[in-house]
Design a protein around this nucleic acid. Sequence first.
DNA 1: CCCGAGTCTGACAACGTTGTCCAGGCTCTA
DNA 2: TAGAGCCTGGACAACGTTGTCAGACTCGGG
Lengths: 349, 349
Amino acid sequence: MPETTRRAERPSGSRYGNRPTMKDVAARAGVGLKTVSRVVNGEPGVTPDTERRVQEAIDALGFRRNDSARVLRKGRTASIGLILEDLADPFYGPLSRAVEEVARAHGALLINGSSAEDPEREQELALALCARRVDGLVVIPAGDDHRYLEPEIRAGVATVFVDRPAGKIDADVVLSDNHGGARDGVAHLIAHGHRRIGFIGDMPRIHTAAERLRGYRAAMEDAGIPVEERWMSLGVTSPERVRRAAREMLTGPDPVTAIFTGNNRVTVTVIRVLAGHSRRVALVGFDDIELADLLQPGLTVVAQDSAALGRTAAERLFRQLDGTPVAPERIELPTKLITRGSGELPPDD
Amino acid sequence: MPETTRRAERPSGSRYGNRPTMKDVAARAGVGLKTVSRVVNGEPGVTPDTERRVQEAIDALGFRRNDSARVLRKGRTASIGLILEDLADPFYGPLSRAVEEVARAHGALLINGSSAEDPEREQELALALCARRVDGLVVIPAGDDHRYLEPEIRAGVATVFVDRPAGKIDADVVLSDNHGGARDGVAHLIAHGHRRIGFIGDMPRIHTAAERLRGYRAAMEDAGIPVEERWMSLGVTSPERVRRAAREMLTGPDPVTAIFTGNNRVTVTVIRVLAGHSRRVALVGFDDIELADLLQPGLTVVAQDSAALGRTAAERLFRQLDGTPVAPERIELPTKLITRGSGELPPDD
DNA sequence: CCCGAGTCTGACAACGTTGTCCAGGCTCTA
DNA sequence: TAGAGCCTGGACAACGTTGTCAGACTCGGG
């Protein structure tokens, strides 16, 4: 009873009940294995009559091609991986969605994972995806050393970094113009008469945070305003820390009359602080926020197009995959200043 | 020259350059194939010295286990699929994140796709994921007929529906208490003196929309208020339609003095309409919104815990996978009325 | 009526991994 | 020192699919 023996050798943890395979379909339809394969893949060279018989067998058995086996044989998985910081962050929703759209247009599935800003977790995830043999990887880096990806890239895994550049390797990267955007935003405040302007941002080891701080400094320098140390606060974006930082620069002698916030999480917290504050303080935030127009006053922001970031990165990825090899490139997308009121408040003193 | 011949038979489209395999590692380390397998999987029965040699070969070659082959052999992929409507919708971010967290805790990866509310696309996605042999599927249904999943479920693919029940099949489902939540929200308006209350919601074929409408009707009936047809508007949640619907019920003789909105997209649009409206109109919305507390007046909402929905569904999924088979169940999570001002405005007439 | 060209079909190997099973060398005890 | 038992290592088959190649069959023309 060889059939029984064969089944018994199946590893016991299998979930695939006894899923029908092409062999089963072939047996039922009374044709050869390859003929079933041809039908399933729409290859030519099958008479309509045979095709119909095979199709009936497929339907009757509920057969579904096993892509693991297919991948093993063909070498391509038609799936790409996306590693981001936190799917629950509204900034990443549209980005992720845009990557998915492009992947879909290329017939690929998207596998994603959150690094939670932990470099180790990023690496773990990236390598797990490589073990899955994804065709490519879109990474929003948490760490600053990506040499661990070198063997993968050499082996043909297309790789594009988004939002922040890769560390210690040469790879495609798609960024917003963080420096220019921050400079514009701060310049906007200066143009409305502010001189004592605060900056609250993320940890300086994060590339975007550092760039935005640079932009802040540049704008101040352009205007000939010496920056005071206590106007700048960098660190984790937890509400507690941000709240404390904002309160500190809003009190004491010579308090700031305006604040530039380094990302959406910071902005939200600062808005709450300002809502409970007696003096009116101007505010410009990096990243747009839903309902920003409905706040009182409307929130002026430096908006980056997160969907465009995702789309550009994904397209770049598939260009690596489809076409001839191209040299790594750095693409910078412009930001846009959207004025809604909060940045146009005059200084109060 | 058998080696050359073997390589030449590789399908030409392969991306895997010449990725090293266990065979290559074994050759380099001077051990057998299975010994490499044992080292890679941390199985016992390898002397420290041999293990070190194998590990060196692995590092030198940049070997990474091919999970496709592994899956083929073992039958389990350690990955689950999530199908939702639109990743860019803030409601789904936390949900997706919660599912991912649970998956991670079980050592599984998450593959996700957006159905864009298109039943056909949902099916296409679900079947593609099944072809990938995901171990399980979390689905936020767009369609109302899921019989196409029957063969998959029979074959052992764990399946849980979220937010809306499955159509025409018996399966696990995790829902919010849409009916009760809407009823509470509307009752809240009634308690503040409103009698002419509008309802703007999504297309009635969507389960959640229908349930919330039922809740609205129930609250009105409980209060003995006859509902007028022109107070209710169901349809696509595009800003244009919602804006028109809101304007219609706000004008004419006997306009509504309060509006209950059926989801976050509708709520946002209605807030914009009300902001440009002369009369003060009370508002309660289904789904919480970031910054709702900072609007003027603060937005009163019926909040559902989307992260809890995702977590509960994913946990249920892994219970199906880990343990003994369980009968399909319907789990309903409570909603929470959060009062912030907009729902407490008195009627204006 | 036969042969060649063309069409359709199926046997077989290979993709890279893991489970089974056995061989050989070692240690420990009597 | 011999025998029993343990530990390590390796040969082999199988997972389900696809590419190759050759065989069988059909049809039309000579």
